[in-house]
Write a protein that binds this DNA or RNA. Structure first.
Length: 354
DNA sequence: AATTCATTATCAC
DNA sequence: CTAACGGTGATAATGAATT
């Protein structure tokens, strides 16, 4: 079945919302994320607006580096409640454009517009893509009108192409890639532009003289499968623009967790255990609020130097008992401290839902 | 021998 | 000291433990 899939992505979402709320920020570099603390902050950048990006600041960049690149930027904490509220409004708008939608995150969604091929007699199959483009313009306009925020839309024959198209024309862009354009669109792109190829995978491909998708396509399915396993096969398909993933709002949570990075690495048991206690309670709270039981408990401990370890235990039977969670989790933390004498950077707890 | 469990690695947002 | 590196969640690989 031929499809028309739309992907919409809000431009520098968190930063743009902050700019909307504080018009005096317009034209200035805005960085939403951890507190830089005069250069000693430990977190990362959540979102940088496009002015800040000119300084080389981007998502996931350590906030200390961001501060170094542009100390005069406006640094703001993440106001998640605000973004959540704005996101809900936007998603309500998006959902009106097709009954087949999928919310990916606070600022991203897919729409399946395939129905426009059929639902108007006088419009033959030929004009489907033109109509999709009109719809996208309308959607972008409505969001700008009602929420005063710009977005970028990509349209393609599947989710993969729609997403990659949007990625290429940010910010405030609109790009339609029809089936016969997929090959030319993909081939010149860098391998890291392909969803699923991150820094590690790219690092292994570049020495093989594989830097573009065109070059990636020279590798056989067998070679990719042997080198990268299941992911390798997916990469093979994606490099050819093949993606059959449906647009659907499935959302089955499989695990819940909380973690915390300390301001300074520490071995102080008071700090470690009181923080861990809060984490445990938070996880349990989340659990009971959703009437979930858990069966597997995983404790994460990251030491100085970023050395990260996990310990996990699967219970005989699923339970909701806070006391079991507490005692098992604390046992693990204690073990970590006995096994490893380094100061602790992060502790975390995750449970697999039953 | 097959399945589950524990751990690490990688990716995305 | 020469990188800096959050929080949340998913999935896969691999080897060990269990059934």
């Amino acid at each position: 079945m031929n499809r028309i899939i739309l992907h919409i992505d809000m431009d520098a979402f968190f930063a743009q919302v902050e700019e909307r709320e504080n018009p005096q920020f317009k034209g200035k570099p805005v960085v939403v994320g951890a507190d830089p603390k005069g250069g000693s902050g430990r977190g990362v950048v959540s979102t940088a607006n496009y002015v800040a990006r000119k300084y080389g600041i981007h998502s996931a960049l350590p906030i200390s580096k961001a501060y170094e690149l542009c100390p005069k930027a406006i640094f703001l904490p993440v106001n998640m409640e605000l973004y959540q509220k704005v996101s809900e409004n936007i998603m309500e708008i998006i959902k009106k454009y097709s009954s087949k939608w999928e919310i990916v995150s606070l600022d991203e969604a897919y729409l399946d517009l395939s129905h426009i091929f059929y639902d108007r007699k006088k419009c033959g199959i030929r004009c489907g893509w033109e109509r999709a483009k009109r719809i996208a313009k309308k959607l972008k306009e409505e969001i700008l009108e009602k929420e005063k925020l710009t977005s970028t839309v990509g349209i393609g024959p599947n989710k993969l192409i729609a997403k990659m198209a949007a990625e290429k024309v940010k910010p405030n862009g609109l790009l339609v890639i029809k089936p016969n354009q997929v090959k030319n669109f993909l081939e010149p792109l860098d391998i890291e532009d392909l969803p699923g190829i991150g820094p590690k995978t790219a690092e292994r491909l570049r020495p093989l003289s594989v830097n573009t998708i065109k070059e990636l396509k020279k590798l056989s399915k067998t070679k990719l499968k042997d080198t990268f396993g299941v992911v390798g096969e997916t990469i093979y398909e994606r490099a050819r623009g093949i993606d059959e993933e449906e647009v659907s709002p499935e959302e089955i949570i499989k695990s819940i967790g909380k973690e915390h990075t300390f301001e300074k690495d520490t071995r102080d048991p008071e700090i470690l255990f009181s923080t861990f206690e809060k984490i445990i309670k938070n996880v349990h709270q989340e659990l009971t609020a959703n009437k979930f039981s858990f069966k597997t408990i995983t404790v994460i401990c990251r030491f100085q130097g970023f050395e990260t370890h996990t310990k996990s235990k699967t219970l005989k039977n699923p339970t909701q008992d806070l006391e079991i969670l507490k005692s098992e989790a604390k046992k693990f933390l204690l073990k970590f401290l006995l096994e490893n004498k380094k100061p602790v950077r992060l502790i975390g707890l995750r449970v697999r839902i039953w």
